[in-house]
C-alpha cells in the first residue's frame, strides 16, 4: 500500500516539478520521508494576499491517494477558512461522508482522482474568495464581512511578513 502511495507521490512530484501552476511549488521537505511535503503558495494577484508567499506543510497518509492529505500553513494566517493553528478547511481535503463541520455541500470532495496540484489550486481560490459560510476563524470571517479595510490591513501585514519586508 505504502509502495503505491510512494509511486503516486513521486508521479505527482515530478508533474509539479516540471509543469507547476503559476506561483505554486510543492515537494517533499526531505526525500527520506516522502509523506511530508512543503508547499509555497503565492497569494493571487488582485487580492489582499497578492505577492505573499505562504508556506504550508502537507502530511500524506500511508494509504494515499485513497485518503486525502492534511494541510496546514506554517506561517501566521488570518483568513475565514484557515484555523488559527494554520489548518486549512476546504472540502477537497475531506473524503465524501467525512464532514466534521457538517456544513459542506456536495462540493468537490477528496477522491483518488484529485491531486496535490488540485488541492493547492483550491487553496489559491480560497485565498482569493473566502467562503464566509464555513468559517474556521470566526474573527476573520466577521472582519471579512464587516470591516474589509481592517482585514486588508492585516493581510498586508502578513504578506510583508512572509516576504521578510519591514512593516509599513
Amino acid at each position: 500500500m505504502a509502495g503505491r502511495a510512494l509511486k503516486r507521490l513521486m508521479t505527482e512530484y515530478k508533474q509539479l516539478t516540471l509543469n507547476p501552476p503559476e506561483g505554486i511549488i510543492a515537494g517533499p521537505t526531505n526525500e527520506e520521508n516522502f509523506f511530508e511535503w512543503e508547499a509555497l503558495i503565492v497569494g493571487p494577484e488582485g487580492t489582499c494576499f497578492e505577492c505573499g508567499v505562504f508556506p504550508a506543510k502537507l502530511i500524506f497518509p500511508p494509504d494515499y491517494p485513497l485518503s486525502p492529505p492534511k494541510m496546514q500553513f506554517t506561517c501566521e494566517m488570518f483568513h475565514p477558512n484557515i484555523y488559527s493553528d494554520g489548518r486549512v478547511c476546504i472540502s477537497i481535503l475531506h473524503a465524501p461522508g467525512d464532514d466534521p463541520m457538517g456544513y459542506e455541500t456536495s462540493a468537490e470532495r477528496w477522491s483518488p482522482v484529485q491531486s496535490v496540484e488540485k488541492i493547492l489550486l483550491s487553496v489559491v481560490s480560497m485565498l482569493a474568495e473566502p467562503n464566509d459560510e464555513s468559517s474556521a476563524n470566526v474573527d476573520a470571517a466577521k472582519m471579512w464581512r464587516d470591516d474589509r479595510d481592517q482585514f486588508n490591513k492585516i493581510a498586508e501585514r502578513l504578506v510583508r511578513k512572509t516576504l521578510n519586508l519591514p512593516h509599513s
Binding site: Q15, L18, N19, P20, P21, E22, G23, V42, P44, E45, G46, T47, E108, V113, S115, E117, K118, L121, S122, V124, S125, A128, E129
Partner: peptide, 28 residues
C-alpha cells in the same frame, strides 16, 4: 482529464497562472 479543471478553479487562480512567456515547460 487535464491537470486542472477550469470549472473548478476560480478566475483568480487562472490569472495567477498567467504572465510567464519564458518558462513554459515541455509537456510530457
Amino acid at each position: 482529464p487535464s491537470r486542472v479543471d477550469p470549472a473548478r478553479v476560480s478566475p483568480q487562480s487562472s490569472d495567477l497562472r498567467s504572465s510567464s512567456p519564458t518558462a513554459t515547460p515541455l509537456p510530457s
